[in-house]
């Protein structure tokens, strides 16, 4: 595999390949079995690398669950001890009553706290900015705040960002992103709208991400009309990395 092919596959896998190039590659893959094999080989090798931190993550989860006693509750290396039938009957009645009562309470709770369509769509599509690639295009002064954001230390991250001048590229974006993560959707809307003002010259990828998170902020703030308009704007841009997911979100919203 040449460097150029590797770079192409890398961008394709990272979903950073522009739409037109991605489409061209997919067309080529359909007709070229050797290219398909090369991509497969790249993906398998790539996954062998990605599996190293994933296995470490699973080990941490295992240790955490062990400390909580999860495995003692959920597994038994011992044969099960039969219960006496009368005790089993009483337990069955008790458990059934609890289940019926819990069902009624959950049902009532659901109808009282049923999320709106906007909230439901937000819950489905929102996630904190997941991958730390690309923010170096912003000012280096933002990096300490970004590191805090990545580790979900949102309050100190917000302090870091708000200490910077809002006229700097990327600052309003990260302020808005952090406000959204800390359940302040109205403030996030304001910051992300500011990030998209023409006077602010942020890197293109940051502007595209700001457009997406503004749509999320509108949903969270229950501003459904604005959210739909924003999603349509994203879905109409061929090079928008959030184009597909915006189309899916619009389809979900249209079920209303």
């Amino acid at each position: 595999m040449t460097y150029d092919q590797f770079d192409l596959f890398d961008q394709y896998t990272n979903k950073t390949l522009p739409d037109a190039k991605r489409q061209a590659l997919e067309d080529q893959l359909r007709d070229d079995p050797a290219l398909r094999d090369s991509l497969r080989d790249y993906q398998q090798f790539r996954h062998s690398l990605d599996a190293v931190p994933l296995n470490r993550q699973l080990n941490r989860i295992h240790d955490r669950l062990a400390a909580q006693g999860f495995f003692d509750e959920n597994t038994s290396d011992r044969p099960p001890v039969p219960l006496s039938s009368s005790f089993r009957r009483r337990r069955l009645v008790l458990v059934s009553s609890v289940v019926v009562l819990a069902g009624l309470l959950i049902g009532a709770g659901y109808w009282l706290t049923k999320p709106t369509l906007a909230e439901q769509t937000f819950l489905t599509y929102y996630q904190p900015e997941p991958v730390a690639r690309g923010e170096m295009a912003c000012s280096p002064g933002l990096l300490p705040g970004i590191q805090l954001y990545r580790t979900q230390q949102y309050e100190p991250a917000l302090q870091q960002f708000t200490a910077l001048s809002a006229s700097q590229p990327c600052v309003s974006y990260y302020v808005g992103l952090t406000q959204l993560a800390t359940d302040q959707p109205e403030l996030a809307v304001h910051s992300l709208e500011s990030a998209l003002k023409p006077a602010i010259t942020s890197p293109p990828l940051i502007r595209q991400k700001a457009e997406w998170y503004l749509a999320m902020a509108y949903l969270k703030a229950n501003q459904l009309t604005k959210a739909k308009s924003q999603l349509i704007r994203i879905a109409q841009q061929p090079d928008q990395p959030f184009r597909n997911v915006a189309q899916q979100a619009l389809a979900d919203l249209s079920h209303d």
């Binding site: 699973l58 989860i61 295992h62 669950l65 959920n74 819950l123 489905t124 599509y125 996630q127 997941p130």
Partner: peptide, 29 residues
């Protein structure tokens, strides 16, 4: 819902992996 779980796993979220870990362990052990 399943779609949220699907997306969260793709994003590498720890909570999603823990959820799947618990579920799988309970079903397969």
């Amino acid at each position: 819902n399943q779609q949220l779980l699907y997306r969260s796993l793709l994003a590498g979220e720890d909570a999603a992996f823990e959820y799947l870990y618990r579920l799988l362990y309970q079903r397969i052990s």
